[in-house]
Design a protein around this nucleic acid. Sequence first.
DNA 1: CCAGCTTGCAGAATCGGTTCTTCACGCCCT
DNA 2: AGGGCGTGAAGAACCGATTCTGCAAGCTGG
Lengths: 362, 362
Amino acid sequence: MSRSHGRRLGRAGIRDVAAAAGVSITTVSDALNGKGRLPEATRRHVREVADRLGYRPSAAARTLRTGKSGLIGLTVTTYGEEPFTFTEFAYFAEMARAASSAALARGYALVILPGSTRQSPYDVWSNVALDGTVVIDPSDRDPVVTELVRQGVPVVSDGRPCGDLPVTAWVDNDHEAAVTGLLDHLAAAGARRIGLLTGTSTDTYTRLSTSAYLRWCERNGQPPVYEAYPAHDPCAGAVAADRLLARPDRPDAVYGLFDPNGTDLLAAARRYGLRVPDDLLLVCCSESAVYATTEPPVTTLSLKPGRIGTTVVQLLIDAIEGTGGGRPVQRIMPTDLIVRASSQRRRPQTTISAPRAPEQHS
Amino acid sequence: MSRSHGRRLGRAGIRDVAAAAGVSITTVSDALNGKGRLPEATRRHVREVADRLGYRPSAAARTLRTGKSGLIGLTVTTYGEEPFTFTEFAYFAEMARAASSAALARGYALVILPGSTRQSPYDVWSNVALDGTVVIDPSDRDPVVTELVRQGVPVVSDGRPCGDLPVTAWVDNDHEAAVTGLLDHLAAAGARRIGLLTGTSTDTYTRLSTSAYLRWCERNGQPPVYEAYPAHDPCAGAVAADRLLARPDRPDAVYGLFDPNGTDLLAAARRYGLRVPDDLLLVCCSESAVYATTEPPVTTLSLKPGRIGTTVVQLLIDAIEGTGGGRPVQRIMPTDLIVRASSQRRRPQTTISAPRAPEQHS
DNA sequence: CCAGCTTGCAGAATCGGTTCTTCACGCCCT
DNA sequence: AGGGCGTGAAGAACCGATTCTGCAAGCTGG
């Protein structure tokens, strides 16, 4: 049974299968991969023997030979010490979930990698064979991206690349349209002075959203009222929310760019005795479901991270497999304004009904 | 400059470096890996040439030769169609973040893999070379785990394995102690009849928590009051919360086993005109920061997923590298009851205070 | 002066598949 | 009978590193 190969404990190689089936390794490979010219009988026989031996082809050997690993990198640009500090935790989680799902559906797996790279050629990045990489919020002249592209590895980014970063493709929301639409919505609900809670960092999301706000203010003859804070600091948000509502030119509506802004603003409003939505209209950008059940429920702008994750992966795999046509692609994805009580002057429905009325004796 | 190898666009191999440096490939390998007997001058020279050529060793080749890929699988048992449907979304996200971080710190990367496997030897699982795998909530006789162990791949699980699943090691919370402590806390706050919102599924978390509740009730002479619902259905939770508060033997305190239970119960309490915490004490198990800013803030039981993720990965890498002693290991991790207003009869502090106390992270 | 050790490096086997090339054989057709 | 063709399968190169073995030169000590 055992060949000269001396049977490494528990693993059968292709040579073992070949020997056991009485054929050559070429035949085994062809039979299992559906290639070559083999009668169905031989294929079946080989498959049976392989099954019996519990044969698993070596991923490393296949990758070495074919140059395809079936692995896709996923990385997010980080600001602090931690490999992953997400200001948009729910966003990232959902995006990663969808991306992973889409990749799996096409036979690829996602590898989570750090945003930075050590200079040495022996960091994690070069220790894993990647067919391509997804980069979330790439920074200007990102060294990882530059290096990957130099190596000929396709890179697709979530978020427009800053500067002249040479990504293969990118996907992003239409942030300007989203902010404009949202401000129009608030204005239609009666807002006269809309404030903004924004960030101090220079990523494209913050930049585009803020400039869209400023332009909207200009077009509508409203003086901008905003507070900026370092978005990666969880405590700073609450302070900034407080500051915004403490201003002498207190806004009568606020849009918060980041996920926790909604609860922070709600808390700040309570402290100042402001009723939402009566005294203050509220919208924030969030993927979190909790805003459906806050008191009052808060209108949110969803960036649809699931759709983004799926699209990013599709584009990347298309590029990897050469299915994508070839030229660089950019795709703009729609956002979704989920209107709830916090942004409507006149509450749609004040009587509270139970999901299943407990007593229905009328 | 170019050798017989015909310079594949953009990639330099070890042979190219050897040729350019005027040494053998053995010397290049040894110099770059700090092995062999080489004078520092030669090492430096080789490193410089390698840098100049932008040499990156092939991960596939190294993996094939050494048998180590530096890759760790991460998988979660799923219940529905989706590769990832998390009832405990925040839990999983934080756990994965910490696990990824810990792995990266030790030179490994995490690969996200589906919970199931297609029968064929050609699914994603066998297409990637794994040094080990982390399994979250493995089900009874999980085929993936069984197969991996058969292949000699170390497997560490988050959550006690059901049945006689042969994992290398596992990590879990002390769910019984957590529930008992939490119920004691509620009783100390004045609760006379504590209700439970639990799940219908049979995973160990649900099982252990529920049985701890039942035993506590028995010990304390309180009749159990609970409602169970399919935890993977987001809507069912709100209905179950409502049902629990609609019962004739309405509890004066409730513990919810799942993350959304807090907001659901808060909403249900509002519908029935119950004030929290005056008429109803509330605790739920959650990793979400939103409960710090709800009205009122809700006491939560944190399972400390960050710590679990870190520990799981440490144990796994120890097993991979043989550092771990060898024998199977199980580790019980503490939980953390974050006491807020919802579980204290007498509100600790009603006056308006500074924005928000920095919440303890992980 | 030479055995014996150390130092510095090269050769070649090896990991386990994929795939290109070759080849034997049987059959059909002329 | 023999050339051409189609079929089934084997041989061997190859992917790009790691690593074991070997060997020449230089040095030391008896």
